[in-house]
Simulated assay, not measured.
Amino acid sequence: MTAQQVTLRTMTTAEYRAATEHREAESVRVLSRTMAEDLARERVAQGTARFLPDGLETPGHHLLTAENKAGEAVGNAWAGPDPSGAAASAWLYDINVFEPHRRHGYGAAILAAVEELIAADGRTALGLNVVGDNAAAIALYRRAGYDVASMVMRKQV
């Protein structure tokens, strides 16, 4: 497969709304495995309010749409300050490849473009979280050279 390339641009207001709805729904789906759905929805809404208090205009955050060579939106990403406060590090809060474009190399292309962007911002590392059963995402990050920095495990008893 030929390596894909993407161009990143700031999301439009409509794209931001759609990306937020998608991200929040996915987060609620994952959190609902370990807590009541209403509590998961509350926690996710609090997270969005905490990390993106000004939405699309939140300083220091990149809310991005990825376009292929034809100018078609193929996915999006959200990168910003590392929540640990590490000044040299950025954080990948979300990355998404739109359904019709999955399994065509766009995830790797979006990730590489985000890495270039944060490097241009003067950051020397990019951290992220990945849900343990998301095999496709884990494989993508491993291929891109990411290592496990910590691991939390859980068992329902």
Rank of each mutant, 00 (worst) to 15 (best):
T2K: 14
A3P: 13
A3Y: 11
Q5F: 12
R9E: 11
T10W: 08
M11R: 12
T12C: 09
T13C: 14
T13M: 14
A14F: 00
E15Q: 13
E15P: 09
R17S: 15
A18Y: 07
A18C: 09
A18S: 14
E21C: 07
H22N: 04
R23L: 15
R23P: 01
E24M: 14
E24L: 13
E24C: 14
A25S: 13
A25E: 11
E26R: 14
R29V: 00
R29N: 03
V30P: 01
V30L: 13
L31H: 12
L31W: 12
T34M: 09
E37R: 13
D38Q: 11
L39F: 00
A40Q: 03
R43I: 08
R43N: 04
R43Y: 03
R43E: 09
R43S: 08
V44T: 06
A45Q: 14
G47S: 07
G47M: 03
G47R: 03
T48S: 13
L52N: 02
L52P: 01
P53Y: 10
P53K: 06
D54P: 08
D54N: 14
D54G: 12
G55Y: 05
G55H: 05
L56R: 08
T58F: 01
T58K: 04
P59F: 03
G60S: 05
H61Q: 10
H61V: 12
H61D: 02
H62V: 00
L64F: 06
L64A: 07
T65Y: 02
E67S: 15
G71S: 10
G71Q: 10
A73L: 06
A73I: 12
G75D: 07
G75H: 06
N76T: 13
A77P: 10
A77N: 08
A79E: 10
G80Q: 02
P81C: 08
D82Y: 11
P83N: 04
P83H: 03
S84F: 02
A86D: 12
A88P: 09
A90K: 00
W91D: 01
W91K: 02
Y93P: 01
D94W: 03
D94M: 02
I95F: 06
I95G: 07
N96W: 15
N96V: 15
V97Y: 05
V97P: 04
F98D: 15
E99T: 15
E99F: 10
E99R: 14
P100I: 04
H101N: 04
H104Y: 05
H104W: 00
G105S: 07
G105Q: 06
G107L: 08
A108S: 13
A108W: 00
A108I: 01
I110K: 01
A112D: 08
V114N: 00
L117R: 11
L117P: 02
L117H: 05
L117W: 03
I118H: 01
A119E: 04
A120Q: 10
D121K: 14
D121A: 14
R123W: 06
T124H: 13
A125W: 08
L126Q: 03
N129C: 02
N129I: 03
V130I: 01
V130K: 00
V130Y: 00
V131P: 00
D133F: 13
N134W: 02
I138L: 12
I138S: 02
A139S: 10
A139L: 05
L140E: 00
R142S: 13
R142F: 09
R143P: 12
A144C: 03
G145V: 04
Y146I: 10
D147W: 15
V148D: 09
A149I: 14
M151E: 15
V152W: 05
V152Q: 11
V152I: 13
R154D: 05
Q156G: 10
Q156K: 10
